[in-house]
Nucleic acid binder design. Structure first.
Lengths: 251, 251
DNA sequence: TAGGCCATGTGGTCCAACCACATCAACTAC
DNA sequence: GTAGTTGATGTGGTTGGACCACATGGCCTA
């Protein structure tokens, strides 16, 4: 009775049949990110295959990063779709960006590219935003007790990473993380060039709040604009000319 | 009697134990391309796990394009290593990373983000474009002489990296380079599952030429649009549902 | 010698259990 | 009544055994 309209090759291996079925559910929208697959036993019965074959298919999807299997009962249980697999075949990702001798202007450019994208894409209810909000409070505290600018900027970086994480793209998060050292290395020069650190910190905090508020209001376009201006101003104030208007650093 | 010196995490899932064992064989050189794994039953006995777990591990390797399973007896039988993941994915086969949920959809997203940006800002006279053009010619040559899809796609990756380099941003170039391994890992499976490689290669080449032409004409917007469509189509065509080994489902 | 047959070994599939785990509801003790 | 315990329920994780389809190669027969 379970006639899904999949064209089964007569000699298709059984676990591929399961994969095809799941793929169809996903492409049809009957299954999407966050959704749960039927239990292995149920799926086996529905597709008239053994649970073994279902498990082999799920194992592949798990290795590809499409689903995550969790035992027990409750929210963590079952097989959950964690990635839209329209183009998903998983693979190992090893990021080792050599951030040693990179021009600051290129870093600024890349930060703007990645962070504006992330800001435009972040969901208002992303849990990473809570972390960002907390970091905002810590920065306020640091500022009150007249701690060093380094402490403040360490939190500042974490704030920006949290915003990037809120976009939900693991690769972008990893790339931002790989820039962390470079960004940190810059802060020394940054603080040295500032005439009035307190005023700068206050302004940065105000901008941070605006950005976070824009994301929380689901105004991605505004958030992206604010982020770009924020990063630009941040580096300009530190005496590093921002790479002119989208155009690189010529020469 | 089988004391392999693998450090078994006590809570490691069984099929991952098998993956770890096979990874060790490959990295130690005791197993290489063309070599055959022990039979599933033998392997299960040696590692003191069930054949089911061995099969799940082999299924993953098969989906990753590392091995090919053949029934019967004779040269086509047994589980044969058809690709050296040690070379393809870096110094070690990070299968545990593969199961660590780094969805390829995120990689696709990031590629589109970075490459469209690079295409939009690449200068028509960038020297990297000459390299890109040369690679185009090489891909044509490869296509003419044989069905060496792997060779073609190796050049394809270099082409994309050259375009990214043409934007003149060292950070973006480094990030694209860090994605290289991931992209390469995907292409192995990609080629194995295409019904008509020649047609696909021709289409890819046509798109490559369009992209390059757009950049040469200083039409960054068009180049970006073409790149996005190109990458999207590229991954979609190798989409989920036809892991290595089986023939792709007819449409 | 030529042809056919079958023992052997492979992966492919299925089944029936059992385990570990996590939740939740019913129950019990206070 | 409340707090803690216990068991039912359902999940994925694992196992061993069984049978199948397939391909080879040697044995046996004509």
């Amino acid at each position: 009775m379970w006639s899904n309209h999949i064209n089964y090759d007569s000699d298709m291996r059984t676990h591929q049949l399961v994969l095809t079925w799941i793929e169809k559910q996903l492409s049809d929208g009957q299954l999407s990110v966050g959704g749960r697959l039927p239990s292995e036993r149920t799926l086996a019965e529905q597709l008239a295959v053994s649970r073994t074959s279902v498990r082999e298919a799920i194992r592949i999807l798990e290795a590809m990063g499409v689903v995550r299997a969790g035992v027990g009962s409750g929210p963590e249980a079952g097989t959950v779709v964690i990635s839209d697999p329209t183009a998903a075949l998983g693979s190992a990702l090893r990021l080792h960006v050599a951030t040693q001798h990179l021009p600051v202007s290129d870093i600024v450019e890349t930060r703007i590219l990645l962070e504006t994208w992330a800001a435009a894409r972040a969901k208002p209810d992303a849990p990473e935003l809570d972390l960002a909000a907390m970091l905002l409070g810590e920065m306020d505290a640091v500022e009150r007790v007249a701690r060093t600018a380094d402490d403040f900027l360490a939190l500042d970086i974490r704030f920006h990473l949290a915003l990037a994480d809120a976009a939900g793209n693991a690769v972008v998060s990893a790339m931002m993380g790989s820039l962390r050292e470079s960004i940190q290395g810059y802060t020394a020069r940054f603080t040295a060039n500032l005439p009035d650190w307190d005023a700068t910190a206050s302004r940065l905090q105000a901008e941070h709040r605006e950005i976070l508020a824009a994301i929380r209001n689901d105004d991605g376009a505004r958030a992206a604009t604010l982020v770009a201006a924020h990063i630009e101003g941040y580096y300009r104030e530190g005496g590093v000319g921002r790479p002119a208007g989208g155009r690189p650093a010529e020469e």
